[in-house]
Design a protein around this nucleic acid. Structure first.
Lengths: 149, 149
DNA sequence: ATACTTGCAAATTGTTTGCATATGA
DNA sequence: TCATATGCAAACAATTTGCAAGTAT
């Protein structure tokens, strides 16, 4: 359980491990990732309706600060959170039909960005790459639909 | 002047070319790009304070629809607009210190995305790539500062 | 003439904060 | 004990809409 890491990190910061925070952490860590605050709150509320929206908001902010969560903003502008994967960087494929978000890793891409940055004498902090389009499943459905009609 | 294209496109859609729209178009097209609505509005207001914020908002939305503007959202979540460059796709380097946004084009990147998509059986619509870091100018300033102290 | 446009005010949405009360270390 | 956390309500900011009056075609 990542609860241990959580307790370590949180006490390092002189903050408190409350039951609300642990509950939110558990739900968040076992969730599918890439969810916005409303979605995470909905899940939390299903299990413990006593927990307020604000607490979920502040907890996700805290988890991000502790390095246990990552904030993402895709083209739709919504703020989403995903459990932080230590080390490896990844990017995303985003289906415009069903909204599915697929993670991918590509070493060439990591190398490529270095060349681009060098050409512009730019010191890289990080990058993000998103590919928008249609996932296999939705594409299949579309073909089926076309066939039927 | 892109006013001609504007008039063509707008009448194609059965809409009207008003002086507000033309004024906003001119300011927008000659602007530096990557500006948010408030910034564009500020420029418009300087020249014609009679034009309302809502009109600027709706006009930029319209220009986007007509294919004359492109909406962008970078990591800060702000909605920005840039004059649409027909044809060529480009991506961005974004300086985290001064906020400068540099455009770049990279053919390898375009090729690379095709491979990634193919591996995931994904039909690409478009992509976006942003590299965050420190631009040459800011980097130099930092070094100067360090030397002084 | 009439459908489209404007600009104000007001609604909406997503995010963030103030504060009195409750609680973990 | 006492600094930190909670949850409500309310502030905020950015975006979007309703509507009466104005305008391009």
């Amino acid at each position: 359980m990542e609860t241990d890491l959580f307790k370590t990190r949180i006490s390092e910061e002189g903050l408190k491990a409350t039951k609300q925070r642990e509950e939110i952490l558990n739900i968040f860590m076992t969730s599918s990732g890439h969810q916005n605050l409303a979605q995470i709150y909905a899940q939390v509320a299903k299990i413990n309706p006593k927990i307020g929206y604000t607490t979920v908001y502040r907890t996700l902010k805290l988890l991000t600060h502790l390095g246990l969560a990552t904030q993402r903003k895709f083209a739709d502008g919504e703020t989403r959170y995903e459990p932080a994967s230590e080390g490896s960087h990844h990017d995303h494929l985003i289906c415009l039909d069903c909204g599915k978000i697929i993670e991918f890793e590509d070493q060439t891409l990591e190398t490529l960005q270095n060349g681009i940055a060098r050409r512009h004498r730019f010191k890289i902090s990080h990058h993000r790459m998103e590919i928008y389009g249609c996932c296999e499943e939705c594409h299949r459905k579309k073909r089926m639909g076309r066939r039927k009609s």
